[in-house]
Design a protein around this nucleic acid. Structure first.
Lengths: 222, 222
DNA sequence: TGGGTATTTGAATCACGATTCAACAAACAT
DNA sequence: ATGTTTGTTGAATCGTGATTCAAATACCCA
């Protein structure tokens, strides 16, 4: 038998398993057995911890968002220069590639958010938090005279997050000429106009091209 | 018995029924019976025309995109002034409200595009077409000295479509303070910087607020 | 008008995932 | 050690939607 775990530990594992399963099979198309398998358990055990599967899915989405947001924050804390901070923040909001787990999960949610209020709220909340994050960077930069904002920080923040989101979708959909690097450059194009700062890239980009490996062949569903 | 239709006619009806059903139940969560009911037929009849349901779904998505694109084109053809044309184009890319059918369907597709190559290609193609549409408007405007482009037209076009897409998601997810009007203003904020044109709104906006009716209560799925 | 054909129905069947639950076993307490 | 608690299994059952197909019927045409 699989090693027993405390209720709390197992629930955390299940949340993560659900997250992985949803990325593979879709936020709504995912099956109980797929989550169980991902967790190395049987379906009965999953039900023991989450009698209503929807609760698990919501928690998994919530956890995915927290993780996404925390990872971004971790990457930018400690950067003093506002311009560098802005550049790194933009990059951190984009997927590494078409298979980036964090962004994939968020994209899954987009469609469901139109039908399900809980998901809509979840996604909206994340959006607002990211806007606030950008606003802080922008205003600090303006206060330090690094940036000369051409619009109010809310407008710029909203547009920056919007651009990130949209290019995330493009990258996940494997656009042939827009990869993470290209998206960064496109978003920076706007950021330069909005901040009046040259926002020069210094560090080497994480990836160099949009072209990608042929990817692991995997059964398609719908 | 339901009135008989020619194969071609019935297929067109089914494509539209599938489109409606997907908007209600999700691009992937939709069931054969729901499509049949929407078409006023039984499941057997649907299978008679589309032995593989996936073919129908793909055609429905394709049709939805064509319709979306054609509607946009119809709205802007005949507008001579580049600035007005740009403004109307931006508005036409946004949903009327959270229940806008065309955009809802596109949003449904976003998540699936990460898992399904066909859907990814479909969505990518639409994106590129829209970018090209904007590029034309921008370049004509620049040729007429109406616009002074701050970036190359491809960058501006890509960013404009990206912004539209992203605000479409926000509106569909019922963001409390971003409705179609607010989204237009946000996107115009960027467009003004990029074109050097004031892009003043003349016609009354279609809707006046982001606040919406409480909406028809409907059973939630996932 | 009547025969032929294409479309649709509806019931039967199949397939698969969710749900239940008694039995079992790992950890824990004493 | 032994008993108790708690997490897990696995088989049985249930429910739902997909699939099949013979029968019924609407439409077409000679």
């Amino acid at each position: 038998m699989t090693q027993r775990k405390s209720k709390a530990d197992r629930r955390i594992e299940l949340i993560d398993a659900a997250r992985r399963a949803m990325i593979q099979h879709g936020a709504e198309g995912v099956h109980l057995n797929q989550i169980a398998e991902e967790a190395g358990l049987t379906s009965g055990a999953v039900l023991y911890h989450y009698p209503d599967l929807r609760d698990l899915l919501i928690e998994a989405h919530h956890a995915g968002m927290e993780r996404f947001y925390e990872q971004r924050m971790k990457k930018i804390t400690g950067i003093a220069d506002p311009a560098q901070k802005l550049i790194v923040t933009i990059r951190s909001g984009l997927p590494q590639g078409p298979d980036d787990a964090g962004v994939r999960l968020l994209c899954e949610l987009g469609g469901a958010a139109g039908r399900n209020r809980v998901y809509g709220t979840l996604l909206t909340t994340l959006y607002d938090r990211q806007v606030a994050m950008y606003q802080t960077i922008l205003e600090v930069g303006a206060a330090h005279n690094a940036f000369t904002l051409a619009q109010d920080s809310e407008t710029i923040g909203r547009n920056l997050v919007a651009l990130e989101d949209a290019y995330g979708y493009r990258i996940v959909a494997r656009h042939h000429s827009i990869g993470a690097d290209e998206a960064v450059e496109l978003i920076l194009g706007y950021a330069r106009l909005a901040t009046g700062h040259a926002l020069k890239l210094t560090a080497a980009p994480h990836r160099t091209t949009a072209a990608r490996r042929p990817a692991t062949p995997r059964a398609q569903s719908a």
